[in-house]
Amino acid sequence: MKNVAIIYHSGYGHTRTQAEAVRDGVRSVPGVHAALIAVEEHADNWEVLDTADAIIFGTPTYMAGVSAPFKAFLDASSDRWARQEWKDKLAAGFTNSAGANGDKLATLQQLALFAMQHGMVWVGLGLLPGNTTSSGSAEELNRLAGFLGAMAQSLTDLGPEVAPTTSDRRTAEHLGRRVARIALGWQGPHRAQRHGGRGDAGGTGMSAALTDPDPVTRAEIERTLACYFDGLHHSDTGLLAQVFHPGAVYATATDGALTRLTMDEYFPVVDARPSPASRGEQRHDSVVSVHLAGPVTAIAVVTCTIGPKHFTDLLSLIRVGHRWQIISKVFHYDLDTTEEPTPCPT
């Protein structure tokens, strides 16, 4: 199943009508799912956008450009731009205004340039202009002669139940259908590596499934890991609660039997023990490796020492909102037999 996200802003309902027509076009293609997102709700839908195979952007044309709420969304995507999380996704756009022209081309150009900065692949309308002869009709598709995206006109004295016109709605539906059809055959970001790519490890593709993070992403993950190390060294569950997701699990089988704790069970253990810092222990923290399985999923291998135990932790991380959190901790430890063992887990 391919996923197409349609994110839009509508001041008076007309661009929403256009967005719904785009959605209907996407839905008409078997094997493609459409998600319609009002731009006011973008903060709750980053994951939908991040995992989509294509994103179609829609906004009214206000003062020769995108509307202010839509521009705020474009600016809010800058952290994804820094990590190029949307690179190689498909992109397309649509816009609406009261005038037949209304400088709608400038808005579509702004959307296309935005997509180019993200490294996305733009899909145009793919229609010849309609209503260009004396025998033509305003009911023909692409009557406003747009090529970069779908254009629509909504007269100011007509409500969204009437405007945009039927032909403009059908043109928007065509755009959605075109993007959906192209998405069916589109590999998209990292898809060739995750599905069907042959890695070096016996042809299983596993080595190709993990990638090195870009510098910005690695720095974000390492900030989480630094807080994790600080929390362990000082037995500070307040710090640990910042880096562990509330649903995280802790597991080890080093002693021969599985120990599995929730965070509600793990944190009291940490609170009850003397901290390594209070015992004057030197820190031996290190990050062995960090790899990404996707834009919001990572695995880190780290080591640390607490008392006589030398730990190797496998930390699975997910990006929730604007921060990375540990969702699982699986570890092994070796004992330094020159010291008295301690029963306290990390």
Rank of each mutant, 00 (worst) to 15 (best):
S28G: 11
W122Q: 02
I326M: 03
A251C: 11
L240W: 06
G247V: 02
A251P: 05
V26W: 00
E47N: 09
A54K: 00
T211G: 14
P60N: 09
I182L: 13
L141I: 02
V301A: 09
L292S: 11
I327K: 10
Y333L: 12
S167R: 01
L292Q: 10
R273W: 10
T337F: 11
D157G: 09
A52I: 04
M116P: 02
Y266K: 12
G205L: 03
P160D: 07
G159V: 04
T171W: 04
V216F: 14
S289Y: 08
A100K: 09
D168M: 03
Q84N: 13
S289L: 10
T312K: 07
H174K: 00
V22D: 01
D24W: 03
L127D: 05
Y12S: 13
V287A: 10
H42D: 07
T252V: 10
A82W: 02
R169M: 14
L128E: 15
Q187D: 12
A106W: 00
V48I: 10
A152Y: 02
T17Q: 06
W324F: 10
R143Y: 00
S137F: 06
H14W: 02
A64S: 15
H174E: 00
V301R: 11
D334M: 11
W324C: 07
M1P: 14
V243F: 01
R169T: 08
K71A: 14
L36G: 01
A112L: 06
T252N: 15
S278A: 14
S328I: 00
A257R: 12
T107L: 01
Y8K: 03
W46I: 00
P189V: 08
G307M: 08
L184I: 06
I221A: 13
T337I: 11
Q110G: 13
D212A: 14
G321W: 02
R178T: 01
S328P: 07
V4R: 01
T338Y: 03
W46G: 03
T252A: 12
S28Q: 12
P213H: 08
G126R: 00
L155E: 15
P69L: 06
V302P: 06
G202K: 04
V296M: 11
M151K: 03
A208N: 14
D24Y: 03
Q109L: 14
G294D: 15
G294P: 08
I182Q: 11
V66F: 02
P189M: 13
A19Q: 05
G199W: 09
H332I: 05
V249H: 14
A253W: 10
G294V: 01
L128T: 14
V29W: 05
A112P: 00
A72V: 09
S135P: 01
T95H: 05
K309P: 04
V330D: 14
A112C: 08
F311C: 11
